[in-house]
Every structure is written in C-alpha cells, then in structure tokens.
Design a protein around this nucleic acid. Structure first.
Length: 599
RNA sequence: GCCACCUUAGCUCAAUGGCAGAGCAACCGCUUCGUAAGUGGUAGGUUUCGAGUUCAACUCUCGAAGGUGGCUCCA
C-alpha cells in the first residue's frame, strides 16, 4: 500500500513549476490561435500537467515543436507571476470572452466548488495570476517568476480529447498533456522510465512470450489464449480454487446464458443494459450473455429450498466467463476485455455475520496477493455518488455503507474513500493495483449488497421463525483471470515465479548426440510434475540459451558429455547465474524450494 | 461511443506520387559446438479493407475496421 509523502504534492516546488508551465503553455496556445482559443482548466498531475482548450482546429503533435519553442522563450523572459484577488464581477469582465472561465467564476461565487469543479467546504477567494501578457483564473500557487523554471526540463507529450467537466454530454475539449521536471536529467530519466515500462507492457510480452493474441477475425476485446497462456490461466484459477476451498467456499456453475427477464427483476436491465451484449431472441423469449453472476447465484439459492438461519453463511464461488459489451475505445489489452473470467463468489449471510465474512474474504485476498508477491496496492472504499445509476433505497445504502466501513475499520484496513465508485447495488472495498505505465486497475473487491436479495426474493427462516432477507456479499479475489494476468505479466516483467511459469525447465543439449539423454532427463522431471521442454533444434547451444532466456524460462539445463557421464545437469538461471553441474535430485530439490516459496 | 494519432512480410522497421526493401523469425542445407544470436540458400506482400483523384497511389482525398494515448464507462 502506498505511503503518503510527508509534504502534500500541492505544496511542493515541482507542483508550482508544473502549475506555472500550464499557464505558460496556455499562453503559447492562445498566441498560436491569436485570441481564438478558449481556455478551460490546466492542473498539475503526476509527472506533469495538462491544459484543456477549445480551439478552431485540432492540435497535432506537429504543433508541439513550435509551442515548446515559444514556451521556452516565455520561460527565459523571467516574467513574474503576479497574483491579484478580484471580485466575481471584475473576474467576469476580465474573462468576458472565455465561457469556460465564466462558468468557473459562477461556481466560485456560489461557493461549494473550486476552479476544477470539485466540492470544497468554504467559499473560495477569486484570484487571478498574470505572467507576461497572459492572465488566468487560478488559485495558485506558482513560481515567483518564469526564470525559476528550467527551459530544457519539460516536454509536450500528447493531445487527447477530454469532456468539459468530465461530462460526456458536454463539449469535448482538446487536452494537451506535458511532463515537467526540475532539471533536464529528471526529464531524461522520466522518458527512460517510460521506455522501460513499455518493455514490460503485457500486450507486448503477451505476444513475445506466446501467451495470447487478439484477432480481427474473432473480434475486439476477445483474447485467444495459446497453450502457454492457458497454462497460466489454469494455474491461477486452480490456485485460487484450492485456496478458497480451504477457506470454506463452495463452487457452483451457472452457465453462460440467462433469460433477460431475470435481469429486469434484479435491476441489471435498468442499470447495466448498455454494458450487456444485445439479446438473443428465441420465439418470444430473450436471452442474454451473462454479464454478472449475482442473479444466477441468487436464483440457485432460491431453488435449493427453504433455508434456516443455521445454514448461513453460504458461500457460492464460480469461475464464470462473463460477457460485457465494453465500448471499443474502452478496451485495453487483457486489462479491459469483453470476455472476462471472474473468480466470483456470493456469500449469503445474516446481518450479524457480515463482519466475520468480510474478515474471511480479507484474509483470503491477502493470502492470495502475497502468494503473487503483490504488495503495491491500495484499498478504495467505493461509495455511492449524488448522481448516477445507483438503485434508490437510502436506508439500505446507509446500512450497507456503515457495515462495510465497520468491517474495514475492525480489520485495521487503511483505505481512501471515493464517491460515485460504488456498484449500482451497493458500496465496495476495491483493491487497486498499478500497471507498468502507472495506470491503476481494480483487482480484488468486496461488496456489501442489501438490495438485490430482496429484489429476487431470497429468504431464510430466522431464529424467530419468521422469514428474513439475507445480506449478500459479493467478492472477487483476483478479480478476473484476464486482468489479473495482464497486471501480473507487468508486475513480473514476464519473469513468472517458478510455480507459475508455463515452461519451468528447458533442456539444452550441447550437441545432437545429447538429445537422448536430454529427453530422458526431461521425462524424469516431468514425472515429478515439472513443466519441461527439450530444445532439439540444430542451433548452437549459445543460441538455445538465448532463446530460453528471451522466453524467460526459469531453469536452463545444459547437458553435454560431462553431464551425461555424471548423470547430471548444468543449471543456468534466467538471471544469468551459472549454478554448474548438479545431480537431478539436487536440481529437483532446488526447484521445489523455489516453487514452495513462490519465487 | 467521443478526440487525436497510427496500420507496409509472423515480429521490428525502411521506401514521400514512378519496379515494395532490410534485420530477426520460418523453411532447406552445411556445421555438432559448454552458458545470450555459427553459416549459405529459399520462401514470404491485394502495403488493414472499400471508394475516389491521377498517365501512375504504400505515398494524396473520403469512408470503414482494428490498434495506441486520453476522455466517458468499468473487473
């Protein structure tokens, strides 16, 4: 979990530099369009800043060179940043031809929102900053003068579309992203880091390692897993299955198609329709590919007969392939696909069992993430927002949220809350991990649902002899096999721990005459459960080592005359380390230790 | 879905309106080698797809599909 730094970002020097450069970029863009640019907002972000504009024509990367040159001129002009506090009316006069600024001023005057539209407690002071000939509505802070910025330590990166106020109903603006640092060497280092991150991008490694492919022939967001990729899926799913069985979960299977009517009853139809594949209609009955398991699991619960409070909790887990109609622009490698396999579970329990069940989930998740050597994640408490597609039932939301908070607190989980991130049926505790390029992905999740069980008529008979509605906990450990694998590939940079590596051992005969011996060693290792291949090609040993190395295979066993005579293998690790000749028993012990430790 | 950009051999990339190329991989030989690429040859293409402009299009224009970076949405 990430450690908060001692000094808040917005009080650091680099923040002021980036914030100031945002204004300088806005000046350069405004000048380029000779007053026909409408400026929106331009905050510092991680590694840099952006600024949103509405412009007479699309900007392209070809514009960057000219803009950067002008920005350097402004920087070198050593212009002071002059702050002035103004009244709302004065501000309106200054920004009379800037509609986005006028909207911001209205928000500031009313109070309740800051210049980025975020909610704030106090009514803010309206301030403007001027450097050279450019004035912007801004809270600050900035550097004292542009000379405090290094003219060689920033770079415009990309132009992207972004909706005004993040609202897809409103104008799409042009957002220019830039990175900025204190010194040129920091910039170089950042660009180098980006290059390194690209090398571990799971989409590239997926192909290079022969794990999975995408094809126009099957469709976007529908990965095809090659034997090595499927081996990974199998190992990952078996591991979670075995572990959660040990924790007292039971597995069920509920198929891929469901009558649409069930989703009308559960609330998915109203709240999730856009994310479902279109219906398949047979006579007058419509079916849907399953986008979620909850209604199926609740139906199963109902079909299994009347329940006593003594039978709860019931924990129904399923590795289910779900189909979600993600918009094409939202697809992303394995981390955002249209066919996804959730390691899902629905726990039917009594209200007094929520905390214990949450705690059980938490232990399971922590054990599994630790097995994958995953330590860099944080927990988000995802709450309902003021608007959006959340089922209306304030009382139940309040109860579910209170229960979830209490469970988090009692388990000593550190978390940050975020509004508007809840599922439509209840609040969630989400485990967030970053990919190689710093994008954050939701993996594990625990959700508290007071709403769906009553909609689908789930009941149990309580101690009082009366029917009660069970509470439903939804949880996923790795989230989905696809996304988790994508994040894992990047986490390990393709160097899977021995227990997960699709091929654990490559036998490398020094010459053809060693092929028989290599095969016999391979058979002995396979008999012990290792995943082994023999490189019988007629390439030189050096080339075979290189191939195995590039494939990131944990153990290369070189066998030549000496090894054959001694009944041994020469062990080389993918780190490059040469462990020299070892007996087959010694090697097996070595591999077993690595497998057990998770290395 | 929206904005910008991209799409040439399996992969990485050349060719800017005038005969579509290289390296790696593949295949066929030679080589039989001790810890990251031995060597010769062969084959591989409707330049993503569809229209258009032009004597001539990988190259210019329009449209579609897929991808990349964002936005929106989400596991």
């Amino acid at each position: 979990m990430s450690v908060p730094s001692a000094v808040p970002y917005n009080e650091t020097e680099i923040y002021r530099i980036r914030h100031s450069l945002a204004h300088i970029m806005a000046q350069a863009v405004t000048e380029l369009f000779e007053g026909h640019a409408k400026v929106a907002i331009g905050p510092p972000i991680e590694d840099g800043f952006y600024y949103d504009f509405e412009l007479p024509r699309p900007l392209s990367p070809e514009d960057f060179e000219g803009l950067e040159k002008r920005m350097r001129q402004i920087v070198n002009g050593k212009f002071p940043f002059v702050r002035r506090e103004v009244s709302a009316d004065e501000a309106r006069a200054i920004f009379a031809d800037q509609p986005y600024k006028l909207e911001l001023i209205d928000g500031l005057e009313k109070g309740g929102t800051d210049e980025y539209g975020n909610a704030v407690a106090e009514k803010p002071v309206i301030s403007i900053y001027t450097q050279d000939s450019f004035t912007d509505l801004c809270r600050g802070p900035h550097v004292e003068h542009t000379g405090q910025i290094n003219a060689q330590a920033f770079k415009l990166m990309s132009v992207a579309g972004a909706y005004w106020r993040g609202d897809s109903e409103r104008t799409m603006l042009q957002r220019v992203y830039a990175t900025a640092w204190k010194a040129p060497k920091d910039l170089e280092q950042y660009l180098w880091r980006l290059e390194e991150a690209k090398k571990r991008d799971h989409r590239k490694l997926g192909r290079d390692l022969g794990l999975f492919y995408f094809s126009d022939a099957t469709g976007p967001g529908l990965p095809l897993f090659a034997p090595k990729g499927e081996m990974l899926r199998h190992l990952m799913e078996s591991y979670v299955r075995d572990t959660q069985t040990r924790y007292g979960y039971q597995h069920v299977w509920t198929g891929n198609l469901v009558k649409e009517d069930l989703y009308k009853k559960s609330g998915h139809y109203d709240n999730y329709k856009d994310s479902m594949f279109p219906p398949m209609v047979d006579e007058d009955v419509a079916f849907r590919l399953k986008p979620m398991n909850c209604p199926s699991h609740m139906t199963l619960y109902n079909e299994m007969g009347i329940r006593s409070y003594k039978e709860l909790p019931l924990r129904y887990a399923e590795f289910a392939t779900l189909y979600r109609y993600e918009k094409t622009g939202e697809l992303h490698g394995l981390t955002r696909v249209r066919a996804l396999t959730q390691d899902d579970c629905h726990i039917f329990c009594r209200p007094d069992q929520i905390e214990a069940e949450f705690s059980l989930c938490l232990h399971l998740i922590r054990e599994v993430l630790a097995r994958y050597k995953f330590t860099d994640y944080r927990v988000r408490l995802s709450l309902r927002g003021d608007e959006g597609k959340f089922v209306a039932d304030d009382e139940k939301w309040t109860a579910a949220t209170a229960a979830l908070r209490q469970a988090l607190d009692k388990n000593g989980v550190e978390y940050y809350a975020e509004e508007g991130e809840a599922a439509f049926y209840g609040p969630k505790a989400d485990f967030m991990a970053q990919d190689a390029l710093g994008r954050e992905w939701q993996l594990s999740t625990i959700q508290v649902d007071f709403i769906q069980p009553s909609r689908l008529g789930c009941e149990y008979i309580g101690e009082d002899g009366q029917p009660h509605t069970p509470v439903l906990l939804h949880r996923a450990v790795t989230g989905t096999t696809e996304r988790f694998l994508g994040v894992l590939i990047e986490h390990y940079a393709g160097n899977f721990p021995v227990w997960l590596a699709p091929v654990q051992v490559m036998l490398i005969p020094v010459a053809d005459r060693h092929n028989d011996y290599a095969r016999s060693v391979a058979e002995q290792l396979k008999a012990k459960g290792l995943r082994v291949e023999v490189d019988e090609g007629n390439a030189r040993m050096q080339a075979k080592i290189r191939d195995a190395q590039v494939q990131k295979i944990p153990y290369m066993l070189v066998v030549g005359d000496k090894d054959q005579a001694a009944g041994a293998v020469s062990v080389r690790l993918r780190s490059g380390e040469d462990l020299k000749a070892k007996s087959i028993e010694e090697f097996l012990a070595l591999a077993k230790t690595a497998i057990d430790s998770g290395d």
